[in-house]
Design a protein around this nucleic acid. Structure first.
Length: 1143
RNA sequence: GCUCGGGUGGUGGAAUUGGUAGACACGCAGGACUUAAAAUCCUGUGGCCUUAACAGCUGUACGGGUUCGACUCCCGUCCCGAGUACCA
């Protein structure tokens, strides 16, 4: 009777499936325990040995908890929406539904091979409409809510409306725009659109314009955490900033709660640290530095400069008028004669057919903005104009095709542009045939322009007299250093720049701005930091001592953080110091000796000098004093800032959840619950829609609704579905609710969550936020989703590779290999053998790990193997070339003991990936060694949290262990050799020591040491020749979480007609109870050390006290030899541990 | 740069609270069984010196410190990994 793992594993997997033993009930007397894996994205490549590491750990823990008497929820599902399926569809034309289906089937097969105890009846797939119906539903809740900063809770929009009705927004500042202030009366006077616009700025899920990470290559917007070093995380394509209308989640409002929540959960320090850094909370002050009266342009034209065109913006009305060159308009309007006014009226009566069609689409605010037609502007008549945004729309008839007219049009547009208008031109044909596109384009342009207009208004706030004096508003965490401010720096993008720059410095500033714009996001990030900047010519005044401070611009100050402007303290901040040195700005020292003049010292502990009213104070203490004074003077206030931004929630993609949103007259409206799910429509083509929209924008039949409204055509991002899946597992088939209150209350938090660190800031923050919202709204009763998080490390792969392989033809034939991709292809024949003829040197040639053989501690590549492996094909075909010429210097054929020729490749350890040719498929391992061996070996490799390379050769040891274990029960010839004799104390000690160790190690997730404890135990029982039921029965149960198949088989072997307790499955057995009494020892081999060095071991009774021990030790011959007759100074005795004699 | 981890034999790793460093496994060397191979089993295996043997010295990246005693705690240096990147 041998250990036939293939038959055993197949048999029990089948049996368990049929008996439904993994089905979990929501009603149980047992205590609950919820173990969750981060569900995978089902990629086409299938699982490699790295993926299951965490799954095995969670499976062992789940099975362990089950044996311990818990009702364990351990589900699995698939995060099946996402980019790769769509990319694959773009390339191959295969619909994502099909590829996803196929990949999931493959994943399930692979997972089942490993023998996981998932309750598949609870499987969820984020791309199933039965699932995303509820993702959409939760989105609607987020849309219907706002964050009340006073109560620090998510509340319904209806409550907000009643607040507005009774008291305006005085107590609840608008999170989108702080300048929006209104009374109850104001509120009531607003029309529906205005009210909706305001409400939108409060919603948790809100729609706004913002700078987004736009990836041209992927045709979509990416979240901050999907961008790595200015490149897309997936595919490594360049990412640029772009302004777009997007959905956002107001996660910033939850920043404090997300931070506080970290204190209540059991995550690793580094994981908490990452989240804290990402949230990036800092406390400081906002301070207004007034400008000196000498600064030019301040306040000038503010409020009048409502023009939005970039070129026209900074010009006064007078300047603009001067620039207008008369005579280029085709419908001249002369204020003096009033001629064309009549003309205009006439034209309004007689519009062209195309104009009439377009007017029909634009009139009456039908796209959300008011348009006028045949409107006079200076010397011109515009076909249509939106005065709110300064956008002109022209419909060009036939005569606009002549070159002359085109020139005139261009000149006219230019002139209008000088005035601050943007002109959009469409042909009659476009209006007739693609009216939707035309209207969309107009709407988008106006939307975009509106943002710029809003920015300008924001800029105005900085200098607006109503906000106090004009000046530079800065954010600092160190207000105590205010007397060390030697200059100010504002971000180049800061609106203030244009207003404060003096005539003398204008050229220089403009030159610098050109430089900044020329640099892509990527350059700014990748490049070694250089010091650049320009002086605006303007000065601000230190509000305390009246010192004049020069204002510079530099790209090291970011427009997006704080106020986009800083007060620079060179003696305390290294960047400020470098800047001051570079531009020869004198440095004020406010910390005396603490500043050495060579580099800045950011200390908070120095004593302040040269600092007026805070002289002599410790900096740390001065911070509050300064802020108090600023607040008293009304020029500054305490301010908390966060690095975290609101989370972008729109993707211009197909394979994601459609939004349950429609737009009517430019106002976003929620669909009602009964209209859910909004099914993802079937498409044939996955290319982007018009104007950077997603593929859904190509489907007018789908997005146009009969009442004239239009569906949102973006889809939700990848993290939408994964932000709440752990709740759905609790109640996966519920068609009435996303999860019933009862199920949510029963299962509560995830007790143990296992997954990779790569989701530290994305998925984990989003799901924590969603949980908080759902908690506030009363749907669930816990506000942290995951009680304990365990991060598994990554399994890395060995990649063998050669460098500088120099190929040429001729001479003796020997097999070698070459990458065709790397080489110029010229195949020539020589003696009937084909060669690649090339003189090029390939820099790096990887080869599959399978082509190497591990011999004598070396990875080798054998000639014979290469010849055989050719059949496999793959990206690296083999060729026969001359041995002498292949390896110029580095590689020489070596000869092994059998006389076979081989090479030693270089070895590199990388993340496992298809492209690195280093993936190891678990199916292969399982075929050769079995699932139980695979499971235990993955655990045996090292601590779960640690990343480590996969090395198949070590697996023999674990496999040998399982065979040894088997042989305790059965003999190959004789079959079962289980004995019913009573166990000896020694055998019981071995067993109970193992029980203790396994229990401890499993509890603390030290699975590698647990496996080793099993090995020790089996080795010892083997030495004791112990085949006793009394020992083996508990041992089998102990092993079950780690190696369920062999355990079940042996458990059944232990079964006799008289042992009723062995009926049923080992999976439902009871974890053996530790009996301390078997572990009690009467004596111990004490190590005796002299001055800390062990010199002898003496067996002493554990009852012995200090005096008895001293007596025994001093009587010992070896000890006396070391004492050399001198009396010991001291004898340290630690009971049960050791004895140390100090001489 | 900053933040957080980490550095132990030829290799993966163990040492849970400051108490015999190197468990367990791989690899390697030698041996048994075998016509042979595989499988299995046994012995040895940090380094150095020496031996017939016992024993000795040394050893957890490096330098210092605390302690009867340090892989473990403290200070400094070097190196590796992860996160973050001009966040004021």
């Amino acid at each position: 009777m041998e250990y036939n793992f293939r038959a055993i594993e197949k048999k029990w997997q089948q049996n368990w499936k049929e008996s439904g033993i993994y089905k979990v009930s929501n009603n149980s007397e047992k205590p609950k325990y919820y173990v969750l894996d981060m569900f995978p994205y089902p990629s086409g490549a299938g699982l490699h040995v790295g993926h299951p590491l965490g799954y095995i750990a969670s499976d062992i823990y789940s099975r362990y908890k089950r044996l311990k008497g818990f009702n364990v929820l351990h589900p699995m599902g698939f995060d099946s929406f996402g980019l790769p399926a769509e990319q694959y569809a773009l390339e191959t034309g295969q619909h994502p539904t099909l590829t996803t289906e196929k990949n999931i089937a493959r994943y399930i097969e692979q997972l089942n091979n490993i023998g996981f105890c998932y309750d598949w009846s609870r499987e969820v797939r984020t791309s199933d409409s039965s699932y995303y119906k509820w993702t959409q539903w939760i989105f609607l809740q987020l849309f219907d809510c706002w964050y009340n900063r006073t109560s620090k809770k998510t509340e319904r929009i209806s409550e907000l409306i009643s607040i507005f009705d009774s008291e305006g927004n005085e107590k609840h500042a608008c999170p989108g725009d702080k300048t929006v202030n209104f009374s109850a009366a104001d509120w009531k006077s607003y029309d529906t659109k205005q009210q909706q616009d305001i409400l939108m700025q409060y919603r948790i899920a809100f729609n706004a314009f913002g700078e987004v990470n736009w990836c041209e290559a992927l045709g979509t917007v990416l979240a901050n955490d999907e961008v790595v070093n200015g490149l897309s995380e997936r595919g490594g394509h360049p990412v640029v900033k772009k302004k777009m209308r997007q959905w956002y989640l107001r996660i910033t409002d939850y920043a404090d709660r997300l931070l506080e929540g970290l204190e209540t959960v059991d995550f690793s320090d580094s994981m908490k640290e990452m989240q804290k850094n990402w949230i990036g909370k800092s406390q400081g002050a906002e301070i207004l530095f007034p400008l000196t009266p000498a600064s030019p342009h301040v306040g000038e034209g503010i409020g009048e400069q409502a023009t939005n065109n970039k070129e026209g913006y900074n010009k006064t009305k007078e300047e603009r008028k001067e620039q207008n060159s008369p005579g280029i308009g085709y419908a001249v309007y002369d204020v003096a004669s009033g001629m064309s006014y009549v003309n205009a009226k006439q034209m309004r009566r007689e519009p062209t057919e195309a104009e009439a069609v377009l007017w029909n689409a634009l009139r009456g605010k039908s796209i959300g903005y008011k348009f006028r037609r045949q409107h006079p502007i200076e010397n011109f008549i515009a076909d249509f104009v939106c005065l709110e945004a300064w956008v002109i729309v022209e419909v060009d008839g036939g005569y606009h095709t002549t070159e002359e007219q085109k020139m005139k049009d261009k000149a006219r547009d230019g002139a209008l542009s000088e005035l601050g208008f943007i002109t959009l031109r469409f042909t009659n044909e476009q209006v007739f045939q693609k009216l939707d596109d035309v209207v969309l384009k107009i709407r988008q342009t106006v939307d975009e322009i509106k943002v710029i207009a809003e920015e300008k208004r924001t800029a105005a706030k900085f200098t607006s007299p109503s906000q106090g004096e004009a000046g530079v508003r800065v954010y600092t965490t160190r207000p105590d250093t205010i007397f060390g401010v030697d200059f100010m720096v504002v971000a180049p993008e800061h609106p203030l720049v244009e207003q404060i720059t003096t005539a003398a410095q204008k050229d220089e500033i403009e030159k610098y701005l050109v430089y900044v714009k020329s640099r892509s996001e990527r350059e700014r990030m990748a490049e070694v930091k250089q010091i650049t900047g320009a002086f605006t010519g303007a000065f601000a005044v230190n509000p305390f001592d009246g010192r004049e401070i020069p204002i510079w611009i530099s790209e090291y100050v970011l427009a997006g953080y704080g106020t986009g402007a800083i007060m620079a303290v060179p003696c305390g901040d290294q960047r400020d110091y470098a800047f001051a040195r570079h531009f020869n700005i004198p440095i004020t020292n406010i910390i005396g000796d603490a500043f050495n003049g060579e580099e800045a010292n950011p200390t908070k502990d120095a004593i302040l000098q040269n600092s007026d009213f805070i002289n002599g104070m410790v900096m740390r203490d001065a911070i509050g004093v300064v802020i108090d004074k600023l607040e008293a003077m009304g020029i500054g206030k305490r301010q908390v800032n966060y690095k975290m931004r609101d989370a972008g929630f729109s993707r211009q993609r197909y394979w994601g959840e459609p939004f349950p949103i429609t737009y009517k007259d430019g106002v976003a409206e929620a669909l009602s619950e009964t209209e859910l799910p909004v099914e993802l429509p079937y498409v044939e083509k996955y290319g982007p829609g018009p104007e950077g929209e997603g593929p859904l924008a190509n489907l007018p039949d789908w997005f146009s609704l009969t009442d004239g409204s239009r569906r949102e055509t973006n889809t939700m991002p990848g993290y939408a579905g994964s932000s709440w899946y752990f709740l759905r597992y609790m109640d996966p088939q519920n068609e009435q609710e996303f999860v019933s209150k009862k199920a949510a209350d029963y299962w509560n938090q995830v007790d143990l969550y296992i997954g990779g660190t790569e989701h530290a800031v994305g998925h984990l923050l989003y799901s924590r936020m969603w949980t908080k919202c759902l908690y506030d709204l009363g749907f669930i009763n816990h506000d942290e989703p995951f009680k304990k998080l365990l991060n598994q490390g990554m399994i890395l792969g060995y990649s063998p590779w050669f460098e500088k392989i120099y190929l040429c033809n001729g001479g003796e034939e020997h097999p070698c290999f070459v990458s065709l991709e790397d080489m110029d292809k010229e195949i020539i024949e020589f003696d009937g053998v084909k060669y690649i003829n090339t003189k090029r040197v390939a820099s790096k040639i990887r080869l599959p790990l399978g082509w190497t053989t591990f011999v004598d501690g070396d990875y080798r590549v054998y000639i014979d193997d290469l010849g055989n492996k050719e059949k496999i094909g793959g990206p690296y075909p083999l060729n026969f070339i001359n041995q002498e010429n292949i390896f110029k210097t580095e590689y020489l054929w070596k000869i092994d003991k059998q006389g076979k020729k081989y090479l030693t490749p270089k070895m590199e350890i990388d993340k496992m990936s298809k492209s690195k040719l280093n993936v190891v498929n678990p199916d292969d391992i399982i075929f050769n060694f079995g699932a139980d061996t695979f499971r235990m070996y993955e655990m045996f490799l090292g601590p779960v949290e640690q990343s480590k390379p996969w090395d198949t050769k070590g697996i023999e040891g674990v496999h040998r262990f399982l065979r040894k274990f088997w042989r305790l029960f059965a003999d190959e010839e004789k079959g079962s050799i289980i004995s019913n004799n009573p166990a000896t104390p020694e055998e019981l000690k071995v067993l109970h020591r193992t029980i203790k160790k396994i229990e401890d190690d499993t509890e603390r997730f030290s699975f590698n040491t647990a496996v080793s404890a099993f090995m020790v135990c089996v080795n010892e029982l083997n030495d004791l020749k112990c085949h006793k039921r009394e020992i083996l029965e508990p041992l089998v149960i102990l092993l079950t979480p780690y190696a369920p198949h062999i355990s079940e088989e042996l458990f059944q072997l232990l079964r006799t007609s008289t042992t009723e307790r062995l009926m049923g499955s080992v999976l439902d057995a009871t974890f053996p109870k530790l009996e301390e009494k078997y572990l009690i020892e009467s004596s111990k081999e004490y190590p005796i050390s002299i001055n800390g060095k062990v010199r002898a071991n003496i067996n002493i009774s554990l009852d012995a006290d200090q005096a008895a021990v001293e007596q025994i030790v001093l009587a010992n011959e070896i000890i006396n030899k070391w004492l050399e007759g001198k009396p010991p100074k001291k004898i340290i005795f630690v009971k049960g541990k050791m004895i140390n004699v100090v001489v």
